[in-house]
C-alpha cells in the first residue's frame, strides 16, 4: 500500500473524532454558547468507553457510557454558564481541566492497555472501485457519523427545531419575547454537544487507536473547536475540514513510515500548524465570519 492509498483508506476514520466533536460544538455555538471544554469532555468520554470495552461491556455500552458521562459534565458547564451566568471562556477552560483530570484519575490503572476495535464494513459496489474504493470500507461508527453530519445539516437547513436554535443564537431576547424557552434550549444544545464530544473521545480510545494513554486526545478537542470556525458554522464544510485534518494526521504517520528525512516532531506538529494557518486564512475574511457567524456567541442571556 503506498502513501496515497494509506491516506485514502484511513482518512474518514481519522477524521471521525474531529467530526463528531465539531458537530456537537456546532450545535452548541449555533445556540449562542461557546463551550471551550471539548478537550476535557472528549478525554472523559474516551476513558469511560475504554474502561467499559476493556471489561467486556462491548462497544455499544462503551459509547453510551461515554455519551452519558460527557453529557453530565457538560451539564455542569450549563449550570455555571447559564444558571450562574459565569464567564463562558473561564467555565469552559475549567471544565476542560476537570475532564482531563478525571480521565487521568479514572484511567490510571488502564495506562497503555489495549482493546479490540470494530470490524470494517464495505459499502457494496462502491468499495470495488480501485484506489478510491478504500474510502468505502469503514467501521459502523464512521458510517453513522456521516449520517449524523447529514442529519445536522438538514436540521439547520430545513427543520423548525434548527431554525429555533439559530434564532436563539442570533437574538435570544427576540426569541424569548416570542415565547421560546431560551435557557432550556441552550441547556439541551450543551448536553448534545457534550454527548457528541463523549462519542468522539470514545471513538478515539475504543475504536481508532484502541488503547488508553493519559493525554491521548492530544489537542483534538481544540482542533474541533477551530473546525467550527473553519466550517463557518456549516455542517458540510465542517465535514470537509475534518477530512482535511484526518488526512493531515495520517500524512505525518505516512511520512514517518517512509523514512522521510524530516524531524518527526515537525510532522507531529503538522495538525497544529495547519490549524493556525487555516484559522488565519478564514478569520481574515471578516465579512464571511459576520455573515455566517453567531451574533450572540458567548454572551450570557438575561431577561
Amino acid at each position: 500500500m503506498n502513501a496515497v492509498e494509506f491516506i485514502i483508506s484511513g482518512m474518514l476514520a481519522a477524521a471521525t473524532p474531529f467530526l463528531l466533536a465539531a458537530l456537537g460544538e456546532l450545535v452548541v455555538e449555533r445556540a449562542g454558547v461557546l463551550n471551550l471544554g471539548v478537550e476535557g469532555l472528549m478525554a472523559l468520554g474516551a476513558v469511560l468507553a475504554f474502561i467499559v470495552v476493556y471489561h467486556g461491556g462491548g462497544h455499544l455500552l462503551g459509547f453510551v457510557a461515554a455519551g452519558l458521562g460527557s453529557a453530565v459534565l457538560s451539564l455542569v458547564f450549563a449550570a455555571l454558564a447559564l444558571g450562574f451566568r459565569a464567564n463562558q471562556v473561564a467555565t469552559g477552560l475549567a471544565i476542560g481541566i476537570l475532564g482531563q483530570g478525571l480521565s487521568a484519575l479514572f484511567g490510571k490503572s488502564y495506562e497503555s492497555l489495549t482493546v479490540k476495535g470494530l470490524p470494517k464494513l464495505a459499502f457494496p459496489g462502491l468499495s470495488e472501485i480501485p484506489v478510491v474504493g478504500r474510502l468505502f470500507v469503514e467501521d459502523v461508527v464512521v458510517w453513522l457519523s456521516l449520517a449524523v453530519t447529514f442529519a445536522i445539516w438538514a436540521m439547520f437547513a430545513y427543520t423548525r427545531v434548527g431554525l429555533v436554535v439559530r434564532a436563539i443564537g442570533e437574538n435570544p431576547k427576540a426569541a424569548h419575547a416570542i415565547g421560546y424557552p431560551v435557557i432550556a434550549i441552550r441547556v439541551a444544545a450543551i448536553a448534545f454537544g457534550g454527548m457528541m464530544a463523549g462519542f468522539a473521545g470514545a471513538y478515539a480510545a475504543a475504536v481508532y487507536t484502541p488503547l488508553w494513554a493519559d493525554g491521548m486526545i492530544a489537542g483534538r478537542g481544540w482542533i474541533a473547536i477551530a473546525l467550527v470556525v473553519f466550517g463557518t458554522w456549516l455542517a458540510g464544510r465542517i465535514f470537509l475540514g475534518a477530512c482535511l485534518f484526518g488526512a493531515v494526521s495520517l500524512m505525518s504517520l505516512a511520512a514517518q513510515a517512509t523514512g522521510l528525512d524530516v524531524p518527526s516532531q515537525l510532522l507531529s506538529s503538522l495538525p497544529y500548524l495547519v490549524t493556525i494557518v487555516v484559522l488565519g486564512i478564514i478569520s481574515a475574511d471578516r465579512r464571511l465570519l459576520r455573515l455566517n457567524g453567531v451574533a450572540s456567541l458567548g454572551e450570557p442571556f438575561e431577561r
Partner: peptide, 25 residues
C-alpha cells in the same frame, strides 16, 4: 495572528503551546 488576521487568540495560543512542546522534544 489576532491583529492582522482576526484569528481567535484562544485557539492560536493553545495550538502554539502544543507546537512548543514538540520544539522542546
Amino acid at each position: 495572528w489576532r491583529v492582522r488576521f482576526n484569528a481567535n487568540e484562544i485557539l492560536v495560543s493553545l495550538m502554539l503551546s502544543l507546537v512548543a512542546a514538540q520544539v522542546l522534544n
